[in-house]
């Protein structure tokens, strides 16, 4: 059975590279997120350029992974070179199955995509969550709710762990104290933003200098976490 690979890219050069790399596969091209969403109802694979004219590829991956029709399909994101482990980690965290940079190695891309497509047919109904996420020396296990740096277990409170997970999920995005209160504390502004600052200070200190410094204060706006 031939399954189509749905490629969303507005860049003709990127499309040409994909055509060359994925020769022999049934390729369909879409110039925007809107065009892909209109046509692709799941099945096969979607290959998404990180910078589409109407949406970021990373946001589109999260949308497709959250949609029942496309949740179990293979979704790959193509970023600009050079390869960045932080960009790759952020994209996997949003639910991508594969991350590669332009220009892709033709043989490798095709083999990985075919492999993922073959396996996707055998996926269980529930999405398999990885037991552990690695961000260099920082390892986080969502199910066990544990985190470690260089093998040393961190003694995080439940709230600090939730805060760390929220930052990892939203790497590179600016989050205000109000949003953290709402999304992590599940409370309104009446709790007071001082408690956010104090908890973040504690998390920074527990993460140690190498990772604590990745939570940056953006003056007047909130915080941003970049690995």
């Amino acid at each position: 059975m031939t399954r189509a690979v749905h490629c969303a890219t507005a860049d003709p050069a990127a499309a040409a590279l994909l055509r060359a790399a994925l020769k022999g596969l049934d390729l369909r091209f879409y110039p925007s997120a809107a065009a892909l969403l209109k046509v692709w109802k799941g099945g096969g694979a979607a290959l998404i350029d990180a910078s589409l004219p109407d949406m970021s590829g990373r946001d589109l991956v999260a949308v497709l992974r959250g949609a029942p029709r496309t949740a179990r399909s293979v979704i790959a994101l193509a970023g600009p070179g050079p390869y960045s482990p932080a960009a790759a980690a952020a994209c996997f965290d949003n639910g991508a199955d594969e991350y590669f940079t332009f220009p892709p190695d033709p043989g490798l891309l095709k083999a990985r995509l075919l492999n993922l497509m073959a396996r996707s047919g055998r996926r269980p109904a529930a999405a398999e969550a990885p037991a552990e996420h690695s961000f260099g020396a920082l390892k986080v296990s969502p199910e066990a709710r544990t985190a470690s740096v260089k093998g040393m277990q961190l003694r995080l409170t439940a709230l600090e762990f939730d805060l760390l997970m929220y930052f990892l999920k939203n790497q590179g995005r600016v989050v205000s104290r109000g949003v953290l209160l709402e999304q992590v504390w599940r409370q309104g502004l009446e709790t007071g933003t001082r408690s956010v600052d104090k908890r973040i200070e504690a998390l920074r200190s527990k993460l140690g200098r190498a990772f604590g410094s990745k939570i940056r204060t953006v003056f007047g706006l909130g915080y941003i976490f970049r690995l």
């Binding site: 109407d54 970021s56 600016v174």
Partner: peptide
């Protein structure tokens, strides 16, 4: 997007 939006950005966003 069907309304002809120039973009659709999810919050929280990358500045």
């Amino acid at each position: 997007l069907a309304l002809g939006a120039a973009g659709y950005v999810l919050k929280p966003f990358d500045p």
